[in-house]
Amino acid sequence: MAAAAAAGAGPEMVRGQVFDVGPRYTNLSYIGEGAYGMVCSAYDNVNKVRVAIKKISPFEHQTYCQRTLREIKILLRFRHENIIGINDIIRAPTIEQMKDVYIVQDLMETDLYKLLKTQHLSNDHICYFLYQILRGLKYIHSANVLHRDLKPSNLLLNTTCDLKICDFGLARVADPDHDHTGFLTEYVATRWYRAPEIMLNSKGYTKSIDIWSVGCILAEMLSNRPIFPGKHYLDQLNHILGILGSPSQEDLNCIINLKARNYLLSLPHKNKVPWNRLFPNADSKALDLLDKMLTFNPHKRIEVEQALAHPYLEQYYDPSDEPIAEAPFKFDMELDDLPKEKLKELIFEETARFQPGYRS
């Protein structure tokens, strides 16, 4: 834990890192770190609560700039109880001085990944967590956004079992017609939660990839272990087919990539493993919904509104309290091709509203 900075004593240090967030945020305490930044909790002297502050230093890398800009653009436009918001952003007053960006968010005690390492969940908890994931996802999908990296560590939890989806750095506007060349190379989302079509096709992607990830998360809540822990690309596919069985001819016809289709045709026939054999203690309604989410063919996979209306979630289902976005989200430009200098300018502009004396 960093010592509390005395008023006016300059930035606090946390594990050798400068955290320049005073005077409003003090009493910093280390939480963890990701690929390009550290997260601390801090005391907000204005709202009198502890908050989470993520320090991001992305400006050396085009990919990190892209992810940072995506996350900020999306989260500043989203407003939903099951999606983490941005409360404040701290950065230098000029673009030349801006080396880091500090993002202030609600402090959540833990995440689903940490929880599943230590606790076996009751059916009631599984049901409530799944409902909140789908409630947040309904809003995301209504904005025409794909999260693309749903996994237990991106689901934040607090002691009252509130759940918030975080990390929109890989999110995209849904565009089933656009052929994202190089899709697989830039697709760094965790393999275990990846839909089979991501490994088999490169053309376009749809909201059904997020539903697949939610199915993987439900299976993990039922058993405290990942359902498809593939060691590499082909191993991942083999794990999936080992449980779902061989795809039907109709399902194979959806695979545009001939090499991928021929690979699947070359494999020995596998039978589907019954879900109640894998999860003998699970609620039968939970397994019915799991089956509809972990469907090989993305066109037959359940959609988020149908999933919310499934009998497993009937005690929570309330369409009048499951809000959607006001308007579909649009990125003005494809960020993939922009140089990091341009992305830095866009991050600077996007964060201006939090600067003292800002006038829109």
Score class of each variant (00 low, 15 high):
residue 3 A to P: 05
residue 3 A to M: 07
residue 5 A to D: 12
residue 7 A to F: 03
residue 8 G to M: 01
residue 8 G to N: 02
residue 9 A to P: 04
residue 9 A to G: 12
residue 9 A to H: 10
residue 10 G to C: 12
residue 12 E to F: 12
residue 12 E to L: 10
residue 13 M to S: 11
residue 15 R to W: 14
residue 16 G to D: 00
residue 18 V to M: 09
residue 19 F to Y: 15
residue 19 F to T: 06
residue 19 F to N: 14
residue 20 D to K: 03
residue 21 V to F: 01
residue 21 V to Q: 06
residue 22 G to H: 11
residue 25 Y to F: 14
residue 26 T to A: 07
residue 27 N to R: 08
residue 28 L to T: 01
residue 29 S to W: 00
residue 30 Y to T: 04
residue 30 Y to E: 02
residue 31 I to Y: 15
residue 33 E to I: 02
residue 33 E to A: 05
residue 34 G to R: 11
residue 34 G to A: 07
residue 34 G to K: 01
residue 36 Y to F: 14
residue 36 Y to E: 15
residue 37 G to L: 01
residue 37 G to T: 15
residue 38 M to D: 09
residue 38 M to E: 08
residue 38 M to Q: 15
residue 39 V to C: 13
residue 40 C to T: 07
residue 41 S to E: 13
residue 42 A to Y: 03
residue 43 Y to V: 11
residue 44 D to T: 05
residue 44 D to K: 08
residue 44 D to I: 09
residue 44 D to C: 13
residue 45 N to L: 13
residue 46 V to L: 12
residue 46 V to Y: 07
residue 47 N to E: 13
residue 47 N to M: 10
residue 50 R to S: 14
residue 51 V to I: 14
residue 53 I to C: 01
residue 53 I to M: 14
residue 53 I to L: 11
residue 53 I to D: 01
residue 54 K to V: 10
residue 56 I to Y: 12
residue 56 I to P: 15
residue 57 S to Y: 14
residue 57 S to L: 13
residue 58 P to L: 15
residue 59 F to S: 15
residue 60 E to G: 11
residue 60 E to C: 05
residue 61 H to L: 15
residue 63 T to A: 12
residue 64 Y to V: 15
residue 64 Y to F: 15
residue 64 Y to A: 15
residue 66 Q to G: 08
residue 68 T to G: 07
residue 69 L to M: 14
residue 70 R to T: 00
residue 70 R to H: 09
residue 72 I to F: 12
residue 72 I to T: 05
residue 73 K to V: 08
residue 74 I to P: 11
residue 74 I to R: 12
residue 75 L to W: 15
residue 78 F to T: 02
residue 78 F to W: 05
residue 79 R to G: 09
residue 80 H to K: 02
residue 81 E to Y: 01
residue 82 N to L: 02
residue 83 I to W: 00
residue 85 G to T: 10
residue 87 N to D: 00
residue 89 I to C: 12
residue 89 I to N: 13
residue 91 R to S: 15
residue 92 A to Y: 08
residue 93 P to Q: 15
residue 93 P to I: 09
residue 95 I to G: 03
residue 96 E to H: 00
residue 96 E to L: 11
residue 98 M to W: 14
residue 99 K to T: 10
residue 100 D to A: 14
residue 102 Y to R: 03
residue 103 I to F: 14
residue 103 I to K: 12
residue 105 Q to T: 09
residue 105 Q to L: 12
residue 105 Q to E: 14
residue 106 D to H: 05
residue 106 D to V: 13
residue 107 L to V: 09
residue 108 M to N: 01
residue 108 M to K: 14
residue 108 M to C: 01
residue 109 E to R: 03
residue 110 T to V: 07
residue 111 D to R: 00
residue 114 K to P: 08
residue 115 L to K: 00
residue 116 L to A: 02
residue 118 T to K: 11
residue 118 T to P: 14
residue 119 Q to K: 10
residue 120 H to A: 14
residue 120 H to L: 15
residue 120 H to K: 09
residue 120 H to N: 14
residue 121 L to E: 09
residue 122 S to Y: 10
residue 123 N to D: 03
residue 124 D to C: 04
residue 124 D to E: 14
residue 125 H to R: 03
residue 127 C to H: 07
residue 127 C to T: 05
residue 128 Y to A: 01
residue 130 L to D: 07
residue 131 Y to E: 02
residue 131 Y to D: 00
residue 133 I to Q: 03
residue 133 I to L: 12
residue 133 I to G: 00
residue 134 L to E: 08
residue 134 L to D: 08
residue 134 L to W: 03
residue 134 L to S: 09
residue 135 R to Q: 03
residue 138 K to N: 15
residue 140 I to M: 06
residue 142 S to E: 09
residue 142 S to D: 01
residue 143 A to K: 05
residue 144 N to S: 00
residue 144 N to M: 10
residue 144 N to Q: 06
residue 146 L to M: 12
residue 146 L to I: 12
residue 146 L to A: 08
residue 150 L to R: 00
residue 151 K to F: 01
residue 151 K to C: 10
residue 152 P to H: 13
residue 156 L to Q: 14
residue 157 L to P: 09
residue 158 N to E: 08
residue 159 T to Y: 09
residue 159 T to A: 09
residue 160 T to N: 05
residue 161 C to Q: 12
residue 161 C to P: 01
residue 162 D to I: 00
residue 165 I to N: 15
residue 168 F to N: 02
residue 169 G to T: 02
residue 174 A to G: 08
residue 174 A to R: 03
residue 175 D to S: 06
residue 176 P to E: 09
residue 177 D to G: 04
residue 178 H to F: 06
residue 178 H to G: 07
residue 179 D to F: 12
residue 180 H to I: 12
residue 183 F to W: 06
residue 183 F to M: 09
residue 184 L to M: 14
residue 186 E to M: 02
residue 186 E to A: 07
residue 187 Y to D: 12
residue 187 Y to E: 04
residue 188 V to N: 01
residue 190 T to E: 02
residue 191 R to F: 01
residue 192 W to F: 09
residue 192 W to L: 15
residue 192 W to D: 04
residue 192 W to M: 09
residue 193 Y to G: 10
residue 197 E to F: 06
residue 197 E to D: 15
residue 199 M to W: 07
residue 199 M to C: 04
residue 199 M to K: 14
residue 199 M to Y: 08
residue 202 S to I: 13
residue 203 K to M: 11
residue 203 K to T: 10
residue 205 Y to S: 13
residue 206 T to E: 09
residue 206 T to C: 07
residue 206 T to D: 03
residue 207 K to T: 13
residue 207 K to V: 05
residue 209 I to W: 11
residue 209 I to L: 09
residue 209 I to M: 04
residue 210 D to C: 08
residue 210 D to P: 03
residue 211 I to F: 14
residue 213 S to G: 03
residue 213 S to D: 07
residue 213 S to W: 01
residue 214 V to P: 04
residue 214 V to S: 07
residue 214 V to R: 03
residue 214 V to L: 11
residue 215 G to N: 11
residue 215 G to F: 05
residue 216 C to G: 10
residue 216 C to W: 03
residue 216 C to V: 11
residue 217 I to L: 09
residue 217 I to V: 00
residue 218 L to T: 11
residue 218 L to C: 07
residue 218 L to S: 12
residue 219 A to F: 11
residue 220 E to H: 04
residue 221 M to K: 14
residue 221 M to Q: 05
residue 222 L to F: 10
residue 222 L to S: 02
residue 222 L to E: 05
residue 225 R to K: 05
residue 226 P to D: 00
residue 228 F to D: 02
residue 229 P to R: 06
residue 230 G to L: 02
residue 231 K to P: 01
residue 233 Y to G: 02
residue 235 D to I: 06
residue 238 N to S: 10
residue 238 N to H: 14
residue 240 I to N: 13
residue 240 I to T: 00
residue 241 L to I: 10
residue 241 L to V: 10
residue 242 G to F: 07
residue 243 I to C: 09
residue 244 L to M: 14
residue 244 L to R: 00
residue 244 L to T: 07
residue 245 G to P: 01
residue 246 S to I: 13
residue 247 P to L: 09
residue 248 S to Q: 02
residue 248 S to I: 05
residue 250 E to W: 03
residue 253 N to I: 15
residue 253 N to R: 10
residue 254 C to N: 06
residue 257 N to W: 05
residue 257 N to E: 09
residue 258 L to S: 07
residue 258 L to R: 07
residue 261 R to V: 11
residue 263 Y to A: 03
residue 264 L to H: 01
residue 266 S to N: 12
residue 267 L to F: 01
residue 268 P to Y: 06
residue 269 H to C: 11
residue 270 K to P: 09
residue 270 K to T: 05
residue 271 N to S: 00
residue 273 V to H: 03
residue 273 V to M: 12
residue 273 V to Q: 01
residue 274 P to S: 12
residue 275 W to L: 15
residue 275 W to K: 05
residue 276 N to I: 15
residue 276 N to T: 05
residue 276 N to K: 15
residue 278 L to V: 06
residue 279 F to T: 01
residue 280 P to C: 11
residue 281 N to G: 03
residue 281 N to P: 01
residue 281 N to D: 00
residue 284 S to Y: 03
residue 286 A to S: 13
residue 289 L to S: 06
residue 291 D to L: 11
residue 291 D to R: 12
residue 292 K to L: 09
residue 292 K to H: 06
residue 293 M to Y: 01
residue 294 L to C: 14
residue 296 F to L: 15
residue 298 P to N: 05
residue 299 H to Q: 12
residue 300 K to M: 15
residue 301 R to F: 08
residue 301 R to T: 05
residue 303 E to T: 08
residue 305 E to S: 03
residue 306 Q to L: 14
residue 307 A to V: 12
residue 307 A to S: 14
residue 308 L to P: 00
residue 312 Y to E: 01
residue 312 Y to N: 15
residue 313 L to S: 07
residue 316 Y to V: 08
residue 316 Y to D: 09
residue 318 D to M: 02
residue 319 P to Y: 10
residue 321 D to F: 05
residue 323 P to D: 08
residue 329 F to V: 02
residue 336 D to Y: 14
residue 337 D to P: 06
residue 338 L to M: 14
residue 338 L to V: 06
residue 339 P to D: 10
residue 340 K to W: 02
residue 340 K to T: 05
residue 341 E to G: 06
residue 341 E to V: 13
residue 343 L to E: 07
residue 343 L to M: 12
residue 343 L to D: 12
residue 345 E to K: 13
residue 345 E to I: 03
residue 346 L to Y: 09
residue 346 L to D: 12
residue 346 L to A: 10
residue 347 I to F: 15
residue 347 I to G: 12
residue 347 I to V: 00
residue 347 I to K: 12
residue 347 I to A: 09
residue 348 F to S: 07
residue 348 F to M: 12
residue 349 E to Y: 05
residue 350 E to R: 01
residue 351 T to M: 06
residue 351 T to C: 01
residue 351 T to V: 03
residue 352 A to C: 07
residue 353 R to Y: 12
residue 354 F to P: 01
residue 355 Q to R: 02
residue 356 P to G: 05
residue 356 P to Q: 09
residue 356 P to M: 03
residue 357 G to N: 05
residue 357 G to R: 11
residue 359 R to D: 07
residue 359 R to E: 13
